[in-house]
Simulated assay, not measured.
Amino acid sequence: MAGKQKRLMRFRSTKLKEGMIRMKKFTKEAVKRAGLSLVAAVALFTITTSSASAASAGKVIVKVNGATISMNDASAYITKENYTLVPLRFVSEALGAKVSWDNKEKKATVEVSEPAQKKVTVVLYANDIVIESPAEPLLITSAGSPATMKNNRVMVPLRVISEGLGASVGFTAKTGGGGIVSVSTPWKTPVQPDTPAPTTTPTTNSEYTTWTPTADQKVTGPVVFKPLTWDSSTRTLSFQLPSTIKHGSEEWEVTSGLRDSGKKDRKLETGVEQKLVGLSEDFMVAINIDYEPRSVGIDCYYVMSKSYASKHYGYKGLVDDGLIVYDSHKNMVTLETVYKALGIAN
């Protein structure tokens, strides 16, 4: 047994060294071609110690543009360094990116062309990730936790790849363990098999004033938006979310988080009044409603400034002090439109 363990340790050590050599060779050649110096950057998906340990102990749910993603190949998990790893196949199937795999070099290349061309390169067992774009300097950044193999599946760091392609990533810890990773992309992503088909007509670039709530949204919408008010003069968003929403025999769990430009993403407590004062021009509040016994995402509302919607969600209307709501069916409408559709006088 001791001999087997030593051989296994030598094998892992050799694989790690091979990965590091391949990445060094790749990065030197890439920098030489670009004529640029190396730029160090810190990977951005560091969770606080308490949130990380809670997430590691529970189920990790990944959502892309509000849709809960089923991972049949392998489940997402959080490493001891507090980074979320997902199957490489997830990147192509859920994010809609073009993925190529060089088995000889053990190297994955991930590309998108919208809204701008971006390419991210990852080498198995190597910590460095290369991000390339015609419009920006070549960037070599640390993944924090390198790509690895698990159950014969290539697992890659979600946040640094997603944000390298131009997406936004947030994390909401759940009470009792686990959490939700939310990925928002400025490009269209594939429709997931477990995502209900939209029941409303998608809005056009110039129309954000038509919204027909689904049966579930007629239940969740009033709970979320009736107590929600926006004061544009002080940039204050006020609301109060319950911890759960009862619907028949089911009890849906409510979680929320805030992303505000220049500040750390943070979880928002439910069951108490939230008064977010002095929000920046670029902010977004995510409100997730899930039914855990069936691992079902009931609803997801992103309430955001029009500036944030313009930069990250393809909003092309007038950018003023009003707010935009993006729902789980990819409908994008003004907050006033939601009030009107739900019969809320605000």
Rank of each mutant, 00 (worst) to 15 (best):
M9R: 14
M9I: 08
F11L: 09
R12T: 01
R12C: 03
S13L: 06
L16K: 12
K17Q: 12
E18C: 06
E18P: 02
G19I: 00
M20W: 11
I21R: 06
R22G: 02
K24Y: 13
K25S: 11
F26K: 06
F26C: 05
F26P: 01
T27G: 05
E29Y: 02
K32C: 04
K32Q: 11
R33L: 12
A34W: 03
V39C: 08
V39M: 13
A40Y: 15
A40G: 14
V42W: 13
V42H: 15
V42A: 14
A43G: 10
A43M: 02
L44C: 05
F45N: 09
T46M: 14
T49E: 14
T49W: 08
S50K: 15
S53G: 12
A54H: 13
A55M: 11
A55Q: 00
A55C: 03
S56E: 14
A57E: 08
A57Y: 07
G58C: 03
K59L: 07
K59Y: 04
K59S: 09
V60Q: 08
V60T: 09
I61W: 15
I61Q: 15
I61R: 15
N65E: 00
A67W: 03
A67E: 07
I69C: 11
S70G: 05
M71I: 08
N72M: 08
D73W: 05
D73E: 15
D73L: 10
A74T: 10
A74S: 14
A76C: 00
A76K: 07
Y77N: 04
T79F: 00
K80P: 01
Y83P: 02
L85M: 07
L85S: 00
P87Q: 04
L88Q: 03
R89K: 14
R89T: 12
F90A: 04
F90V: 06
F90K: 11
V91R: 00
E93I: 06
A94N: 05
A94W: 03
K98A: 08
K98P: 02
K104N: 08
E105F: 05
E105T: 07
K106V: 07
K106E: 13
V110K: 06
E111C: 06
E111Q: 14
V112T: 01
V112W: 00
S113C: 06
S113G: 00
Q117S: 12
K119Y: 03
